[in-house]
Design a protein around this nucleic acid. Structure first.
Lengths: 230, 230
DNA sequence: TTTATGGGGTGATATAAATCAACTAAATGC
DNA sequence: GCATTTAGTTGATTTATATCACCCCATAAA
């Protein structure tokens, strides 16, 4: 279930950085190709394999991005939070989504026609540069995650996940999250049971504290050491 | 050891696709910021962590791209072959290389100043689009590799590697390669010993034939099934 | 010639992590 | 109020894969 909201890009306070490069007139054009959507926690925004028509700009809430494989395995490759827009690599290649996006809290987002964005890339050089900068950053994040998951074992991977959540997603410590254990596992490339077990050892070693939905990193230096040692 | 070659972008037969969008005048500008290099097999072209000044366009040979971690683990994330250029995500973010590049055969390549390319993105919209298309394709390839390595076990991963080499890198079957077993392992996220063992079972099951440097996929449908089943 | 060296290969063993199977506790629905 | 589902947790067991310790063989170096 979703409902339409009204406002304008020009005066939007939740505008993604990349739009800063646009003139008022260009923003109006974006406005014309834009739908504001509201998603409930758990709702799918787009699904891996489906055709992609729109770019998604998250204005509130939190969106989880993940790849899924035949055998029901999931790997969370990142999150999109307010004022992020979700880069969809398929838009320029095969017009398909290569990962899925799900609202993990109640979320609002603007869908902007992919053609419009691609057009803007052609007409506004600064927009093009911002766009490439964004893709580049996402590529780097992917490389880091590949590196973590393939080269480190469970404690190192979970340390990376916790540090990532605290410093890149929630930007706070302690942070309050409604990610469940399975999500932490899917971020770290392990099973739910393994995730629970490492978290337990981290708690016992006073590296972190978990209280309901709140996670606090108590000993970040030690977590970083664990991350480095793999 | 490397030596300088002479020629011009304008009449170059080894020009990467993305340059097609450029005018003669723009090609001349690229020419001015260009150095032609020759690398011997095994030589490093750039190393993860080092500052990046140039984009690399491979004109002959083969280049292996990999990420390395503290504990000497390597993961090959792809290859660049003639008429590819190597997209360096750090160029737009932190001016650092996030993976290393090594010539795995004798290789020639043109180094073009990153500033020049970034400038071209701003002045030529079609070039910008080509550029984004290329990055997007690389992102998709990374997603596929992440998916293979984290969701599949050894036979599935090696099947993916063999199919990848045959269809995407060498574009032939059988193909002749000078990749060693360790490289096949680094492509598949496993140890050399494990790589040798799966290859042995593949040979015994008549899925592939290996004769010196030549690898032939005999039963691709079966390999694809193994890949799907993980 | 012998001596390194690097790659391919194999078996035995160790181990990290998945799987399986229970059992709580909380939340939700009827 | 009871039944059902979902999340969290734990222990026992299995298994995939890494590690270790070798072997051989070719080539290059001394």
């Amino acid at each position: 279930m979703s409902k339409l909201l009204e406002s304008s890009c020009l005066h939007c306070k939740k505008r993604s950085d990349i739009f800063e490069a646009l003139s008022d007139e260009e923003l109006d054009r974006v406005d014309m190709c834009r739908v504001n959507m509201r998603y409930h926690a758990g709702e799918i925004i787009f699904k891996q394999g489906s055709p992609c028509y729109d770019f998604v700009c998250v204005t509130s809430g939190l969106v989880k991005l993940y790849i899924e494989s035949e055998n029901d395995h999931r790997l969370i490759i990142g999150f999109a939070k307010p004022i992020d827009y979700i880069f969809v690599p398929g838009a320029y290649v095969d017009k398909r989504h290569h990962f899925s996006a799900v609202a993990c809290e109640d979320t609002t987002a603007c869908l902007v026609e992919a053609d419009m964005i691609q057009n803007m890339v052609k007409t506004n050089p600064n927009f093009a540069s911002s766009f490439i900068r964004k893709i580049s950053a996402q590529s780097i994040a992917l490389l880091e995650q590949i590196s973590s998951i393939t080269h480190k074992q469970i404690p190192g991977r979970m340390a990376d996940t916790l540090i990532y959540l605290s410093t890149k997603v929630y930007n706070s410590n302690p942070f309050t999250t409604n990610l469940i254990r399975q999500d932490l596992a899917d971020l770290s490339g392990m099973t739910k049971e393994s995730a629970i077990r490492v978290l337990k050892t981290f708690k016992e070693d006073d590296l972190i504290r978990i209280d309901g939905n709140q996670i606090e990193i108590i000993n970040q230096p030690m977590l970083e050491t664990i991350s480095r040692n793999g």
